[in-house]
Amino acid sequence: MDPIDAAPWPFEEPPDSEAITLDRVVTGEAPIRLVAHDDDGWQFLDGEHVFEEDGRVVLIGEIVQIDPTLLELADLPVGWHARRPDVGTPWTRLEGEPE
């Protein structure tokens, strides 16, 4: 059994809820270093410049499979974001939208 499946689901939204990420995150070319939670939902990004055509809709359950540390951010309030300089470093939570 996958350890993610063994623990209770921590997000308020179910695992089949849609979220925004980037093609380069899904393909493994870039790590997730920026997470934003706003009125429109969740965004799991790499912290680099983003063009609309780079965006991709995924399920929250799928993105957590790519990076299980995202489970730590399940309680991130709406209107907040979290950053980290790289994989393996702690997330820093910040109120407001990312710059």
Rank of each mutant, 00 (worst) to 15 (best):
G88H: 00
P3H: 15
I60Q: 09
L76M: 14
E52I: 11
G79W: 09
V58N: 00
L22N: 09
T92F: 06
E52A: 14
P8I: 01
E95I: 04
I60A: 10
L45C: 02
D46M: 04
R93N: 08
V87N: 05
T92V: 12
E99R: 03
R83C: 04
L73Q: 05
G47E: 15
W80N: 07
H49R: 14
E48V: 14
R24Y: 03
G61V: 04
G55Y: 06
P10M: 14
L94M: 04
E18G: 13
A30Y: 10
F51S: 11
V35D: 08
D86A: 14
F51M: 11
W91H: 12
D2I: 01
P3R: 15
I32T: 10
V87I: 09
V25T: 02
H81C: 03
D67T: 03
D2W: 05
I63F: 00
I20Q: 03
E12L: 12
L71E: 02
F11M: 04
V25F: 10
R93M: 09
T27C: 14
P14W: 09
E13M: 10
I66D: 06
E72K: 09
L34D: 02
T21Y: 06
R24Q: 08
L70V: 05
F44G: 03
D86Y: 01
V50H: 08
A6H: 06
E97Q: 13
G96W: 04
G47A: 04
E53W: 10
E12P: 14
P85M: 10
R56W: 11
T21L: 07
G28P: 08
D40P: 01
R84G: 03
E18T: 06
A7G: 07
I20P: 00
R84K: 03
I20S: 03
D38K: 08
D40W: 12
R93W: 09
V57M: 10
L34C: 02
W91R: 12
G79E: 08
L94Y: 00
V64M: 12
V58E: 13
T69M: 03
H81D: 03
L45I: 06
A6V: 12
V58L: 12
F11G: 02
V78A: 07
I32C: 09
L70A: 07
F11A: 01
R24E: 04
E48G: 12
D23M: 05
P90S: 00
E97D: 13
E12Y: 11
V87Q: 11
G79F: 07
E95T: 04
S17A: 15
I60V: 15
E48Q: 14
E12T: 13
P10Q: 11
P3I: 15
L76F: 12
T27H: 10
R93I: 10
P98E: 01
W42T: 09
E52N: 08
D46F: 03
L76G: 13
L71A: 15
D2S: 15
G28M: 14
Q65I: 05
W9L: 01
V58I: 10
L45T: 02
P68F: 06
F51C: 07
V26F: 08
